[in-house]
């Protein structure tokens, strides 16, 4: 399989603990992401990305979980969950750098040219911009309004 990958980085005036909570706490994520992530966040556990009405639009397995530093997830549509060859990988790296938090999101092991690869390239920048705004100003960006979304931000 020909694969592609995306790297996104943002600097936040926040703490690693808050950024970790923003990703893993449903009440928190729904504020800026719209959807929320559900799991016990233990390595090997399943995680689910659910819309406000409770539909799981994306899922996968927790590969690594080192709060508040590093979270590695496999990432797949619910229909393809059983087929591990369809899982892509998302790595959240949270680093404290001179009083700022650097959040790096790497989405790799993506099939080149797939719907997932095309659409996540629009989705992640929006999620990260909204997270930055929410953590720094308390106001999320309502960039999702009026859009029917799947797990990859389309």
């Amino acid at each position: 399989m020909n694969t592609t990958e995306f790297h996104y980085t943002t600097y936040l005036k926040s703490t690693p603990e808050k950024v970790w909570a923003a990703i893993t706490t449903p009440e928190f994520a729904s504020k800026y992401w719209g959807n929320a992530n559900f799991s016990d966040w233990q390595a090997g556990s399943r995680w689910e990305h659910r819309t406000p009405t409770g539909t799981t639009v994306c899922t996968g397995l927790v590969r690594e979980s080192v709060p508040p530093k590093r979270l590695v997830l496999s990432w797949v549509t619910p229909a393809d969950f059983a087929d591990e060859s369809k899982h892509s990988r998302v790595t959240f790296a949270i680093d404290d750098i001179q009083g700022m938090v650097r959040l790096s999101v790497t989405h790799d092991q993506l099939e080149a040219g797939s719907d997932m690869a095309t659409s996540i390239s629009g989705g992640w920048p929006r999620v990260l911009s909204s997270l930055k705004s929410y953590l720094e100003t308390g106001v999320a960006l309502d960039t999702w309004a009026g859009q029917e979304r799947s797990c990859h931000g389309k």
């Binding site: 980085t9 920048p125 911009s129």
Partner: peptide, 20 residues
């Protein structure tokens, strides 16, 4: 790799969702 997040931050600063 291209990281478009800072450009997105700037765009959102002046462009609201209705304008978008």
């Amino acid at each position: 790799h291209l990281n478009p997040v800072p450009i997105h931050d700037i765009a959102l600063r002046w462009i609201g969702r209705f304008q978008a």
